[in-house]
Amino acid sequence: MTTGSMKTKRAIGNTITYIVLIVISIIWLFPFVCMFLQSFRSMNEGGGGMVDYLLPKQFSLDSYAFLFSEESKFVRWYGNTLVIAFFVAILSTMMVLCVSYALSRMRFKGRTVLMRFWLILGMFPGFLSMICLYFLLKQFGLTQEGAIPGLILIGVASSGMGYYVTKGYFDTIPKALDEAARIDGASRARVFFTMILPMSKPIIIYALLTAFMNPWCDYVFASYVAFGYSDSYNVAVAMQRWVWTNDYQGYFTRFCAGGMLIAVPITILFMCLQKYYVEGVTGGAVKG
């Protein structure tokens, strides 16, 4: 019970915790550090392929220069992804907000049936319908040359199904506020636009952020829809080919460089908005 032994005990405990945390941090950052280093390896060294050491012997910007050169469409692919991510983020957030408000605040006929139906739909694996969606998009001319709007359409169309987190957030806003405003003669739409939305800034940012990040990792459906038309690739489609296809020799350092160019801005964006993200995932987890 002496405060002295308590203190030493706590100090030892803290030291161990620090050590564990430092080890964890190293493990978490190690791959990214490797990637960062490799992205600066000169093309003269190992021809841009894999090597069995960590520190490049010769630093250079060869890989980055290649990505921005005429030889590569990387800038275009990056732009494509940015455009898709931007529109998907805006439009799908709007869809989610609409659905969430309707399901949270209004009790209409078929509401529970609809929610159950969507829950059931969500249990089917997405890849199942890939081929069907491809041909559906093709009918509208939204594959190959039109793949970018096609991918935006697909990214947005069914986004209403992901309403859980936002609806959970809306549920926590007291209904008494709505009721008061409605007694004062405000319409539902007015309540939604002037009261609920301004109060939901964190969840809107969360929805925007998650929707923005999804398209960066979509290589499966995006490669299907682009169907060999390289101008319509997104970065994920193009870069996974560098790793998996033998046609692309010496693209390893370029992959690392491209990976850095994608990872750094998104990570910075994420760090800035981390607060909202945490709020979103926590809320979503608790409300289910």
Binding site: G46, G47, G49, M50, D52, Q249, G250, Y251, F252
Partner: peptide, 23 residues
Amino acid sequence: VDNGTNIAAIVDGTWDSGPAQAA
């Protein structure tokens, strides 16, 4: 060739002659 490391010999085709020369 480019996906390998520390290569001394590789069974491969003509399409890899460039990288092999570099390696």
